[in-house]
Amino acid sequence: MKKKPTLGIYGFTGCAGCQLSLLDCEDELIDLFSAADIKVFYEAMSNNDDEALVDIALVEGSINTNKQLDELKEIREKAKVLVAFGSCANHGCVQAMALGDGKWEQRFKQVYGDAKFTVAIPREAQPIHKFVKVDAFIPGCPPSKIQMLRAITQLLFGNKPTYTNSPVCLECKFRENECLLNDGKLCLGPLTMGGCTAPCPTHNTPCIGCWGIIEEANHIAELKLLKEKGFKTEEIIRRFRMFGGSEIVEKIEKLLEVAK
């Protein structure tokens, strides 16, 4: 019999919701545990083999301390394929929403004052691709069962997960929703990678972009449109930043210029 691929599931800063969502795939868990030799699963196991070399590492969470950074680099060395698992790992998620504004130290001081840190030295939240080579990703906050299991299946077969490069709007229209943008709401569907099956607009709540920015995202056009609809620049940018992580930082300057 062919050897099963080894799998490690690690977690850094986040809510652990990605790991939890995987655990929540109750009907498929047996299949997962039979298809892979799971060496590490922080959220699910107590006897984790931290030293193990793994074929696939799913890494959840952003990097918020120097210690995490060291650990991440170790995982990179031990893993053949390293996968950014969920929005925190992919983009930095909400803890990175102010990324690059130059005021991190100031904010940190406001919260923690002069506290001394001994175990780990905190740093501004960053997605993992800022530090190590990332081979594949699974989007979502948390990832959807269907998309996640498909991706993991592809990984276990030795393939890179493929996604249809379409925005949330595709599935939103599949579910025959009226477009909230046309109703004057600040919906980020067109800027956001699909795969979530558009639960938010389906419940009449605008998409806030938790799947991360899609490659084709036209932020400038959406900014102009939202401004026409009466939204203030700060409000729009804040929403763009919420799950925009490190990607939006690269666009901010241009966006502020356009907004003038």
Binding site: L32, R150, T164, P167, L170, K173, G189, N218, A221, E222
Partner: peptide
């Protein structure tokens, strides 16, 4: 420059017919 690439125009158009086909393998 204005287009959001949201794809809504093609979804709602009664004569748009395009589809994609992909193969998906079940876990284990």
């Amino acid at each position: 420059e204005k287009c959001l690439s949201c794809g809504q125009c093609t979804m709602v158009c009664p004569t748009c017919t395009c589809f994609n086909v992909i193969d998906e393998i079940e876990l284990n």
